[in-house]
Computed example of a mutant assay.
Amino acid sequence: MTTTSSPEEPIQALQAASELLRALASPVRLGIVSELSGGSKHVHELVTALGVSQPLVSQHLRVLRSSRIVAARRHAREIEYSLSDNHVAHIVLDAIRHAQE
C-alpha cells in the first residue's frame, strides 16, 4: 500500500535535512557529536578530547542545542551533554569513515 503525500512534505523533509546538515557543518561540531556518540560528557571532557578551548566548545554546543541535536542536563555546577538522537551519531560517524577511505 502506498500513501500519497503532498508536494510540500518532501520539500519540508529536505529543508529539515538541510538544516541538520548545516548545524553539523563544522569540524568542532562533528567532533562533539562523535565524542557524545560514546555517551554523555561534561564540557571539560569535550575540551580535553577535542583539544580546543572551552569557549569554543561552548559556542558550538549552543549551536547543537539550538538545533536540538544535543541535550543538556545540569548536575550541581556542571552541565552534562548528550545526543538527543543517536541517528545523528550514525550520520556523523559514517561521514567520518567515508572521508577516511
Score class of each variant (00 low, 15 high):
T48R: 14
S34Y: 12
S40V: 02
D94F: 08
E80T: 12
I96Q: 11
A76V: 09
S34V: 03
L61T: 01
L46I: 06
H90K: 13
G51N: 10
V43G: 03
A71N: 11
E80V: 15
Q12F: 02
S58Q: 15
Q59A: 13
D94C: 10
V70A: 01
E45T: 07
A16R: 05
R77G: 08
R73M: 07
V28F: 04
G38K: 11
I96E: 12
S18N: 11
V63T: 15
R62D: 12
H87A: 13
V52F: 05
P7R: 02
R74T: 13
S53H: 05
H98E: 14
L24D: 02
T2M: 09
E19H: 04
T4A: 13
G51L: 09
V57N: 05
T48W: 04
N86T: 12
I69H: 03
R73A: 11
I69R: 03
L83M: 08
S40C: 06
S34E: 14
L83F: 07
Y81W: 10
H87R: 15
S37A: 15
L24C: 04
R22Y: 10
Y81M: 04
L56C: 02
L50K: 07
E78S: 14
D85Y: 02
K41L: 11
E8K: 06
Q100R: 15
G39L: 05
K41F: 01
S6Q: 02
R77L: 11
H60N: 15
I32V: 11
E35S: 12
A23D: 03
P10A: 08
D85A: 07
S82W: 01
S6R: 01
A76P: 01
V92P: 04
Q12L: 10
A17L: 08
L46M: 06
L36Q: 06
L30C: 11
G51A: 08
T4R: 13
A49Q: 12
V43F: 00
G31E: 03
A16P: 00
S26P: 04
N86Q: 14
T4Q: 12
S53I: 05
S18V: 02
I96C: 04
A25L: 07
I69P: 03
I11D: 01
V47F: 05
T2Y: 07
L46S: 03
R97V: 11
S34C: 08
H98G: 02
I11T: 09
